[in-house]
């Protein structure tokens, strides 16, 4: 499936900023599930300082905001050909060792809730158990916008029983690790069939299954990602794969506006 994507992020401030940096993971890389035909990243109100491939092989850019600016807009757009691989991303690549994905992170530290969730998964093959886990999360954590924030942990989201895709992915990764699977967080896009405009970028999780490699699970939709999914970045949790993260000096109030379209 050939998907056209556009992703605009705009920050505006009520007072000029002395200095700010934004780290962008907004460039997709090709692989078994997708081929990137064209991609552009344009930033206004800031200057590119560095581009590199990070430790999880994400294409990463650092931009700095010029003195006294009050607005930065980041436009990413392009065309990506996607393939339905039944969620299988395949063998682990790169120098990041697989064991790194067995480790908990601040956002995915398992508490009693996550452990109990992991142990509620019944018998079966590895794939069966991961599918079970995905479905239980869908039931236990209701998709609710605004109930959580970027710093909500997996344990918190599970305890309160609500969250968004980011929380679902964290709960999945945390519980899969308790079950002994290396697991990771994936950020990207999902084409919804009935609308072009998307409320937010999407996130899901992958578990490493012997013999298959990385297999993707989307607890928010109860399926393994197919050709409607575009991968952007991966990591141990949201913080590793954040599309935009930054640091700024000054006391200005920040306003964020995001507009995303995904269409065929």
């Amino acid at each position: 499936m050939r998907l056209k994507i556009s992703h605009r992020t705009e920050y505006s401030y009520d007072a000029p900023l002395q200095y700010a940096l934004q780290r962008l993971r907004l460039v997709p890389r090709g692989g078994k599930t997708q081929t990137v035909h064209s991609w552009s990243l344009k930033v206004e109100g800031a200057t590119e300082e560095a581009r590199f491939v990070d430790h999880f092989e994400n294409d990463t850019r650092l931009v700095s905001m010029a003195d006294d600016s009050t607005r930065i807009s980041i436009d990413a757009w392009g065309e990506v050909e996607t393939f339905d691989t039944a969620g299988v991303f395949g063998e682990h690549r790169g120098f990041a060792p697989l064991w790194l994905f067995e480790h908990e992170t601040d956002l995915t530290t398992p508490g009693e809730g996550i452990r109990e969730l992991a142990h509620s998964v019944g018998q079966g093959s590895e794939l069966d158990r991961l599918h079970q886990l995905m479905h239980i999360i869908g039931v236990r954590v209701a998709y609710t916008i605004g109930a959580t924030h970027a710093g909500t942990t997996a344990e918190q989201a599970l305890t309160q029983g609500s969250g968004v895709c980011q929380d679902h992915a964290h709960v999945f990764a945390a519980a899969a690790r308790v079950l002994g699977f290396p697991a990771r967080y994936v950020s990207g896009y999902l084409m919804l069939n009935d609308t072009v405009d998307q409320a937010a970028s999407h996130a899901w999780a992958e578990a490493h299954v012997p013999g298959l490699g990385w297999v993707a699970f989307d607890p928010s939709n109860g399926i393994s990602p197919d050709e409607r999914y575009v991968r952007m970045a991966v990591g141990r949790d949201y913080r590793d794969a954040m599309p935009v993260s930054g640091i700024r000096l000054g006391w200005a109030e920040e306003q964020l506006a995001v507009a995303i379209t995904v269409e065929q």
Binding site: E49, A50, R51, L62
Partner: peptide
């Protein structure tokens, strides 16, 4: 220094 790791990874 915020961002020094990015400059480092970029080889600069």
């Amino acid at each position: 220094v915020p961002g020094i790791m990015d400059v480092y990874r970029a080889g600069n």
